[in-house]
């Protein structure tokens, strides 16, 4: 791992592309399995659920970048855009599979299904919230939007809440695996809620320490 951070600039750029390739591999592999009827008895459902699961995984990894840096000093910020986009791509294919393969090919039926069911609506909302984030994930938009870019990208929290509930509602009862990912989501969102408090406390203890050392030196200790 250490090599990754001390490597050349060249490697740093390449590692992002490597992440895209590795990140998209499960989707391509499952598509191949499903197209050749090797994805179990219900390949459409299996593919849809696997894509949903990878969406959740990349969402959590995207959200983990900040706490990793702030709490543990691990800097993966260079990979955050790729992680976020991978999350979006999986969500996009997940939604496409639902529309193209999982539903009868009648638009009115699909629309009725979306409008009638909070479970589907939440998933759809999560996806729509990710669209502007993906669309502005380029250097031009970051420059152009300035401070508003940060504000806009807070939509990820809303997407996480909608997507997390959608994920929890996707099965008849929650499985152990779902509990695991939902716990991570709660942890990621909880950290954001606690962050202002943590920061204030750290600042307070820092200034207390400074005061202490100043008093100590003034006293000649």
């Amino acid at each position: 791992m250490a090599v990754m951070f001390t490597g050349t600039r060249h490697w740093k750029g390449a590692s992002v592309w490597l992440l895209y390739i590795i990140g998209l591999t499960p989707g391509v592999w499952y598509f191949y399995l499903g197209a050749t009827d090797s994805l179990g008895a219900n390949p459409v459902k299996a593919f849809e659920q696997l894509l949903g699961l990878w969406t959740v995984r990349f969402l959590i990894l995207t959200l983990a970048v900040s706490p990793a840096r702030e709490l543990f000093g691990l800097n993966f910020i260079r990979y955050r855009r790729a992680l976020g986009l991978l999350c979006f791509y999986y969500a996009l294919v997940h939604l496409s599979v639902y529309v193209v393969f999982d539903q009868p090919p009648i638009l009115s039926v699909i629309l009725a299904d979306i409008l009638k069911r909070p479970f589907i609506m939440l998933g759809m909302a999560a996806f729509l919230l990710l669209v502007p984030l993906a669309a502005t994930s380029n250097a031009f938009s970051i420059r152009r939007l300035g401070k508003n870019w940060l504000r806009l990208h807070r939509l990820i929290y809303a997407a996480t809440v909608c997507g997390g509930i959608h994920f929890a509602l996707s099965t008849k009862v929650l499985s152990g695996e779902q509990y695991f990912y939902l716990a991570l989501i709660v942890l990621m969102l909880g950290y954001r809620l606690l962050r202002p408090i943590l920061k204030r406390r750290r600042r307070a203890s820092n200034s207390a320490q400074r005061y202490q050392s100043r008093t100590n030196s003034a006293l000649g200790n």
Binding site: A35, T36, A41, N42, V44, F101, D102, D113, R117
Partner: peptide, 20 residues
């Protein structure tokens, strides 16, 4: 949470021969 109007028949093949 979902419609009961249609169903997918299991064991009809991969994505492209799925039977709803």
């Amino acid at each position: 949470r979902w419609s009961q109007a249609t169903e997918r028949r299991i064991g009809t093949g991969g994505f492209f021969s799925s039977d709803r």
